[in-house]
Design a protein around this nucleic acid. Sequence first.
RNA 1: CGGAGUGUCGUAUACCGGUAGUACGUAUGGUUUGGGACCAUAUUGACUGGGUUCGAUUCCCAGCACUCCGACCA
Length: 411
Amino acid sequence: MKQSQLFTKTQKNAPKDEVSLNAQLLIRAGFINKEMAGVYAYLPLGLRVIEKIKKIVREEMNAIHGQEIIMSSLQPKEVWQSTGRWDDKVVDVWFKSKLKNETEVGFGWSHEEPITEMMKRFLSSYKDFPVYVYQFQTKLRNELRAKSGIMRGREFVMKDLYSYDTDEKRHLKFYNSVKASYMNVFKRVGLGDITYITFAAGGAFTKYSHEFQTVTKAGEDFIYINKEKNIAINEEVLDDSVLKELGVSRNELTKVKSAEVGNIFNFGTSKCDDMNFFTTNEKGEKTSIYLGSYGIGITRLMGVIADHFADEKGIIWPESVAPFKVHLISLGKNEETENIYNDLIESGVEVLYDDRELSAGEKFADSDLIGIPLRIVISKKSLENGGVEIKKRNEKESRILKIEDITKEIK
RNA sequence: CGGAGUGUCGUAUACCGGUAGUACGUAUGGUUUGGGACCAUAUUGACUGGGUUCGAUUCCCAGCACUCCGACCA
């Protein structure tokens, strides 16, 4: 893409009411636009990052046999009443409205109940199980207080996966395979080293749930970690019995701030039982269904990445989620750049080409702010030196590369 | 939801009970062209409503919006 055609612009200053680093950088660089408190639009650059993250998550979900769907944002009240979660006193983040005929509807803050209700129609025999379904959905939550930029909004994109099974062992096996799958996701987006599977408060059925907590100062949670033993415990469940169970002592743990980027829940059979969702076993008897629920906050993950991979000049996207692979910058007019741009496009490289007639300083500053991992500069000077200058965003020094070697080097 | 604070061009800021400045941006022209370059000209603003006052952007009240701390976050 040519940068002259990109409608967004960078800005030097962040809005003063935007305190969190992720939102400051993402707004300055033109990835997102704040619509209101806790509500952000995703602009061309931001959307590319979102889609990159989704692609990784989608690949991992498909690898564990997830089937992708999209549920609705408007939800009927009855389906939530069956589990007692329509009540505002039980769930305090509801947005609700009415149809013209006064029928009450809710805006989806979660999809466990609707998706389970839908599954009743399709899953009627033990032979139909297990089933794993997932979606990328915009969740709407009436948070009392939005904060931390895109880390905790009223509208955000989440990947949610649900597993239905009649066999407990197989259910638990899948639960564990999701753990591994999620860690793959966090590794692939560059956060593997600082993301921990964390013991957290459980539901009605299990003692613990597992959260995926990324160690970052931008987080909202506190966890206690032991890197050697690869143990992490959410502050909210830390007590002597937990320590004993996990075989660690308090002085082996370090308290750190973290952001919850994923969360997996084992509901056992309780949720489906509550919703009167049963199936038939081999003997023709009514049998219960195990449910697991697994979430990754896609937009929050983007915020965590932007926050974590940044320096004083801007963002440093990991290649796997960067909006483009190459930032091609021409200084002054020359005939080579257009050709190189076309060559890169032809060989399938995602490239942002800064074809604007601006000073070098401005182009470099924009490039650093936007944070594309690889920068290629073409100028009179570089051509005299034998080609183009190539530099990674996280490196200080550039090196000269012959023009004919560019596509080979990048591929 | 409890507490605190802030609302001035698109963004960041200054001053002020009596004409609202500056920087960046934007537009036009010119000079530049390896780290946000320079010159000239132009452009754009007091959240909304009420009160006090001869006069309010400034003081007071209400509303709205935003931010922060806490609570909350299956």
